[in-house]
Simulated assay, not measured.
Amino acid sequence: SSLLGGARILTPFGVPTKKNNSIYLKKLNYLLNKQLNVSEYLLNKGSFTYINDLNKEFNLSLNEDSFDKNIFVFKTIKAIIHKENLKNLKNEINLYLNDFHLKNPLRKGVPLATINNLFFKGINLINEFQDEFQEKDNFVSLKTFKVKLSKDEKKIKDEILILLKKQEFNGLSFEKLNDHFHKNINFKEVFQYLTREGLIVKLNDYFLLKGFYQEALNRLDKFLIVNTQITLAEFRDLLKTSRKMALVYLENFDEKRVTKKIDSYRIKNNI
Rank of each mutant, 00 (worst) to 15 (best):
N227W: 00
F223V: 00
R236V: 03
I225Q: 09
K222D: 01
Q229I: 13
V226C: 02
A216C: 07
T228N: 07
K240N: 13
N218Q: 14
K210W: 15
L232T: 15
L232H: 04
Y213Q: 07
I230G: 00
F223D: 00
T241G: 01
L208Y: 13
D221W: 15
R219V: 10
R219F: 08
L239F: 14
I230Y: 02
L232V: 12
A216I: 07
E215K: 01
L224C: 03
A233H: 14
R219N: 06
L239M: 11
N227P: 02
K210F: 15
T228F: 15
L209H: 05
Y213K: 12
N227D: 04
F212T: 02
F212H: 08
Q229G: 14
A216G: 09
Q229D: 09
Q229T: 09
G211D: 14
Q229F: 11
Q214I: 12
R219H: 10
A216V: 12
K210R: 11
R219L: 15
E215L: 07
Q229C: 08
T241L: 07
K210H: 08
Q214M: 06
L208R: 12
R236A: 05
L220F: 07
T228Y: 10
E234N: 11
G211N: 04
D221N: 14
E215I: 10
N218L: 10
L239T: 08
I225W: 11
L217H: 13
E234T: 10
I230F: 02
E234H: 04
Y213M: 14
E234G: 04
N218T: 14
L217W: 05
V226E: 09
L208G: 04
Y213A: 14
I225T: 13
D221G: 13
D237L: 08
E234K: 12
Q214F: 09
